[in-house]
Deep mutational scan, measured.
Amino acid sequence: RGFLEKAAVKKMAKAIMADPNKADEVYKKWADKGYTLTQMSNFLKSKTAGKYDRVYNGYVIHLD
């Protein structure tokens, strides 16, 4: 289950990176699912340092 969630989160993160207008909708879905910042950090780990920082930081702001 965790692997599928991670894959889904990364897919949506890539969608945000391609079209930032989708961010609020995606952040709301993640918040509704109760994803914590720790979970998001783990889901968005990448071999490329900083690749998903913008998405993660946007989610931090959304939760605030």
Rank of each mutant, 00 (worst) to 15 (best):
T48Y: 07
S41T: 09
V9N: 02
V55C: 03
W30R: 00
A18E: 13
A13T: 02
K45I: 09
V9Y: 02
K33V: 09
V26L: 04
K29G: 08
K14A: 12
A49Q: 12
K51W: 09
K45M: 12
V60T: 06
T38R: 09
G34P: 08
V26E: 02
A15H: 07
A18N: 11
G50E: 06
Q39C: 08
V26K: 01
K51C: 08
D32S: 09
I16S: 01
F3H: 12
Y59Q: 00
K11T: 08
K6M: 13
M12A: 11
N42A: 12
N57C: 15
E25N: 07
V55L: 02
A49G: 09
V55P: 01
E25W: 10
N42C: 15
V55S: 01
A7I: 13
M12N: 06
A7E: 11
G34H: 07
A49T: 10
I16F: 01
V55K: 00
V26D: 01
A49V: 12
D64L: 15
M12I: 04
Y35R: 00
N21P: 05
A23G: 06
V55I: 12
G2F: 12
W30Y: 02
Y52P: 00
F43V: 05
V60C: 10
L44S: 00
G50I: 04
R1H: 10
R54G: 13
A49R: 12
A31R: 08
K6A: 14
K47P: 10
A49P: 15
Y56F: 14
K14D: 15
K33D: 07
A7P: 04
K11F: 08
G58C: 05
K22Y: 08
L4C: 15
K10I: 15
K11Q: 13
D53P: 01
G50R: 06
V55R: 00
K6Q: 12
N57R: 12
G2E: 12
K22S: 09
K28Q: 12
G50K: 05
K51V: 07
K11Y: 07
K28A: 09
T36Q: 03
D64W: 09
L44R: 00
V60Y: 05
K28C: 09
L4M: 12
E25D: 11
D64H: 12
A15Q: 12
S46R: 05
D32A: 13
R54W: 14
Y59K: 01
K10Q: 13
A8P: 03
A15D: 06
M17P: 00
R1L: 12
T48I: 10
A31N: 06
D24R: 09
M12H: 05
R1P: 14
L4A: 13
G58A: 04
Y27F: 07
Y52K: 01
L4P: 10
M40Q: 00
